[in-house]
């Protein structure tokens, strides 16, 4: 008689935590998405202005890359993000830390911050274009305003929510204020700050694209607006797909970063 073997069903393997399983999951969901897209565009929706098949979008995207237009728009949008996003993260962290450190300051500024956070900042994009011009500066301003608030809020919440018992333990081992901050409060706040950055990046993408809609000479938002004005749905969707990929890559990157600098966290 053969010993009983433990059979692993394909479905439970797919739910596992291995790298192979997560790559397979990603490929499966992308394939599913493309198939649904292609089928809907071919058989269900015949409005060519609304939806074109994925294959046509791929062709349009290829043309954009070949002509060098894609690289020009990518370069501009990336430049705007690369300037604005780190500023938003660092600025948000500093402001969040100040709020966490001082109750009177926090209580005074809280209503303004709450109002600004819930405000659709993109509504101000035309104003920045008018005031700062069609170049990079107006986009940087919008992205910073979009991205900074989640970082502020999460840094503040993270720094203030460390367990009092851990702080007392640190003090019982002779930790002063700074050592408590370095060995308890800051490490505790890392996962909070990273999830703030995650939300901030999604908002930054919205901010940069919308700001480019309202007046720019290059960038993904500019390209999308131009394609829409000339009814080039395939070209428009090509840039949208690339934006989706950027969001996905950023999310995966942040997850990897979190695993690296906060390895104690449970998934």
């Amino acid at each position: 008689m053969s010993p009983p073997t433990r059979r692993v069903s394909p479905l439970s393997w797919l739910g596992g935590a291995t790298r192979g399983a997560s790559v397979t999951r990603l490929l499966l969901s992308l394939t599913l998405f493309l198939v649904v897209w292609q089928v809907s565009a071919t058989y269900l929706i015949d409005n060519r202005l609304l939806l074109v098949p994925a294959t046509e979008v791929a062709g349009a995207l290829y043309d954009e890359i070949a002509s060098g237009e894609f690289a020009r728009h990518l370069g501009t949008t990336l430049l705007e993000l690369v300037i604005a996003f780190p500023l938003a993260v660092v600025g948000g962290f500093v402001i969040g830390a100040v709020l966490a450190g001082s109750k009177p300051v926090r209580q005074t500024l809280d209503p303004i911050l709450t109002a600004l956070y819930s405000l659709p900042i993109v509504a101000l994009a035309p104003l920045f274009t008018a005031g700062l011009g069609f170049g990079v500066a107006s986009k940087v301003a919008v992205v910073i305003l979009m991205a900074i608030f989640p970082v502020i809020t999460n840094t503040d919440a993270g720094l203030r929510s460390a367990e009092p018992a851990l702080i007392e333990t640190a003090r019982s081992y002779g930790a002063g204020r700074l050592q408590v901050l370095r060995t308890v409060t800051l490490p505790h706040s890392v996962p909070f700050i990273i999830s703030g950055i995650r939300v901030a990046f999604a908002r930054a993408l919205v901010g940069v694209i919308v700001a480019e809609f309202f007046g720019a000479v290059a960038g993904f938002g500019f390209a999308i607006a131009a394609a829409a004005q000339s009814y080039q749905t395939a070209r428009l969707l090509g840039y949208v797909v690339v934006l989706g990929v950027v969001g996905l890559v950023a999310s995966i990157g942040l997850t990897a970063l979190e695993r690296r600098i906060a390895p104690w966290k449970e998934d």
Binding site: S172, Y173, P187
Partner: peptide
Amino acid sequence: PSPDRAMVFQSDNLMPWSTVVDNVAYGLVL
């Protein structure tokens, strides 16, 4: 508080972000 006296609390109060060995080394590093 002084290093001459060490406190063990009811809840273990270990630092969740530090490995076991770094938790034990905590007071010494401080």
